[in-house]
Computed example of a mutant assay.
Amino acid sequence: MKKNKLFVVAIIAFSTVLLGLAFGLSTIKTVVAVRRPVNFPVPFQQDPALTVEGITLGQKLFDDVSLSKNGKLACASCHNQTDAYSSAGIKINEGIDPKISGTRNTPALMNLQWKHSYFRDGRETKLQNTAINAFTSPAEMGETMDNVVKKLNQNPIYRQHFKTIFGIDTIKAKDLTGAIEQYLLSLVSANSRYDQLVVKQKDTFSQDEKEGLLLFKEKCASCHATDLFSDESLRNIGTAAANDPVKKFKVPGLRNVEVSGPYLHDGRFNTLEEVLSFYASGVKKAPGLDPLMQQHGQTGIPLTAAEQKKIILFLKTLTDHAFINKTTLQ
């Protein structure tokens, strides 16, 4: 009898150890670093600690339509991976209410740790806060943050995820936006043919593409600077509507620009050809026009038709097929 009791106690003790190990293993998080390509400048923003589990949860939240007011729209509904997390072919995305229209084209999402500010007008300086706009804007997901957080806390699966990954029992707005921020920071694009040329010295450029690169450096790189192809500035290039209080817009990065049109802050141009034609002959003199758009006694950027074609050929070398088709975290 005594032996039986000792055996039972041993079994209970062993089971307790196993449960403890299982719980411990379930809370172990795999830390990852944001990939920092060697041809990129120093990141502007310090990233939070990223984990595989945090990134995966962030993606789940990014893809979840239930977090919108009508349960039909997610962040990923407008930011599609195959379009470099933009909405190819769509001038202005429709939100939950077709009667309420936005005014800005959906920007592509990548290399966000190197950005100084966010949105087309650069009004937000913290990446974590950008999700709040998407959740609460009447022209987008149309929900309140209180309701979004309530939905998460009523969902046992989400509660378990947040408990395991972040060690919290009650989910708050900052926990939601922090998880999405982890996912967004994992979106690093730096494996285009251009990168293979400058990093690996693997030259697959045609002669026209090489000439396009030289023309780009001469004509465009004042604003589209570094290998991120943006100096992160706000500039007036004469495209703001008369009734738009915002006249300056962020210089967009040009990586994956081939797959992320329409272009400009309002999506007015469907093709790269239209964009280059605008710079060559469509810029009009106006108050506040950026000095770079009015040099040598003329507006815009002097470009012949042949030069425009070569620059476009170069821009297409910035497409990162591994990024837009990826199935792994980075």
Rank of each mutant, 00 (worst) to 15 (best):
V148T: 01
N236V: 07
K247C: 06
K29L: 06
Q330K: 13
P43V: 07
F23N: 09
I171P: 03
L67K: 03
C223M: 09
K174T: 12
C75G: 09
Q294L: 03
V275M: 07
I90W: 00
Q298C: 04
N256A: 04
R255N: 08
A131W: 00
N129S: 14
K126G: 09
A286N: 02
S281H: 14
S26C: 06
E94M: 10
S281F: 11
G142T: 10
L292R: 14
F278R: 10
L21D: 05
K217A: 10
T204R: 08
M141T: 04
V275K: 04
T130Q: 13
F7V: 03
I90K: 00
P138S: 10
T204C: 08
D320L: 01
V52P: 01
T125S: 13
G300R: 01
C75S: 11
A280T: 01
H224N: 06
K72T: 13
F7N: 04
M141D: 03
I301R: 02
T51N: 01
G142S: 13
F216Q: 00
D195A: 07
N133H: 10
G300Y: 01
L152Q: 01
L57S: 00
I28T: 15
T27Y: 12
L127T: 06
F62H: 09
Y85V: 02
L6S: 07
Y158K: 05
R35V: 15
K326M: 12
L73I: 09
A286V: 08
L25T: 10
F278N: 12
Q81V: 06
N155H: 10
L184G: 00
E273C: 04
P48S: 06
E181V: 02
M1T: 12
H265F: 12
V259E: 00
Y279D: 00
F62V: 09
P48M: 11
L25V: 11
G297E: 07
T239F: 07
D63A: 12
A280G: 05
E273N: 14
A242F: 14
A76W: 05
S101G: 05
K285S: 14
W114L: 07
E143L: 00
N256F: 09
D203Q: 12
V246L: 05
S222P: 02
I237T: 04
L318R: 00
S117C: 14
K285W: 09
D244N: 12
V148G: 06
N105V: 07
S87D: 03
W114F: 11
R193D: 15
L313K: 12
T30S: 14
K3L: 11
M110V: 02
K29P: 01
C220K: 03
S66M: 10
F205R: 05
K174P: 04
S230L: 06
S66Y: 06
K126T: 13
Y263V: 12
R255G: 04
D290K: 05
